[in-house]
Design a protein around this nucleic acid. Structure first.
Lengths: 112, 112
DNA sequence: CTATTATTTCGATTATGATAGAAATACAGA
DNA sequence: TCTGTATTTCTATCATAATCGAAATAATAG
């Protein structure tokens, strides 16, 4: 398992995209509604975010591949990209403890 | 399992703290060196970060409880806070799919 | 106390991001 | 085509963050 330094900026951007209160709320909401997701208007209603601001946040999450979009008529359905999230967590722990094997990576990753 | 909206800002700050290239590199380095961690000077040498800049980044990671510090003589040893990371991941997925149980949360969390 | 090394704080500059109102675009239906 | 609703883009403002050199502090050894 080698280091992949070229991926660091990409994963940093993903973390950063989730690193604000409104966007983290959006991600949690979409995860709760996984896998169908929600339409933009309902997200905005539930989180009370102005439409232009919400659009800006959704664009960022989309750019970082944290959410996916599909159109259905006049509605856009946004949903969490579970595979990308999984990748991100894998990357974070990829080298865990490689300099000292006292603790198993799974022990940290797996959680409850 | 209830929603805990008051925790959102805290976890957003944790994600944001890891959401820059230099700090994500620091976290990965400290995870690789887990659980002893590394001294500031060695982190700076390995990542080629100016000492004042590095200090700034370490302070932020420490404020968000992502790293722990202990002093040993004139050296400061920084190490990853594995428990805090675990909490963060747990929070992210806490409500996964609660609006539709088609997918098991573990399936997304567990990874390889 | 002095010298030396490790680390942080100060101060200033530059860049990036969050926000939202108003205007523009996309789609569906009559 | 005209209308109404959903969503995005435009434009501007304000706040926060990254960076680093220089000076300051912390700890140890002599």
């Amino acid at each position: 398992m080698k280091d992949v330094p070229e991926d660091v900026p990409r994963y940093a951007d993903m973390l950063s995209a989730m690193g604000t209160e409104p966007r983290l709320r959006i991600m949690r909401l979409l995860l709760a509604a996984h896998p169908e997701g929600m339409i933009v208007g309902d997200i905005g209603d539930e989180l009370e975010i102005a439409s232009s601001t919400l659009s800006h946040h959704l664009e960022k999450l989309k750019n970082e591949e944290l959410v996916k979009v599909r159109r259905e008529g006049t509605f856009l359905w946004y949903s969490a990209n579970a595979a990308a999230l999984q990748e991100l967590l894998g990357f974070l722990y990829a080298e865990c403890c490689t300099r000292n094997r006292a603790i198993e990576p799974r022990k940290i990753v797996a959680g409850r």
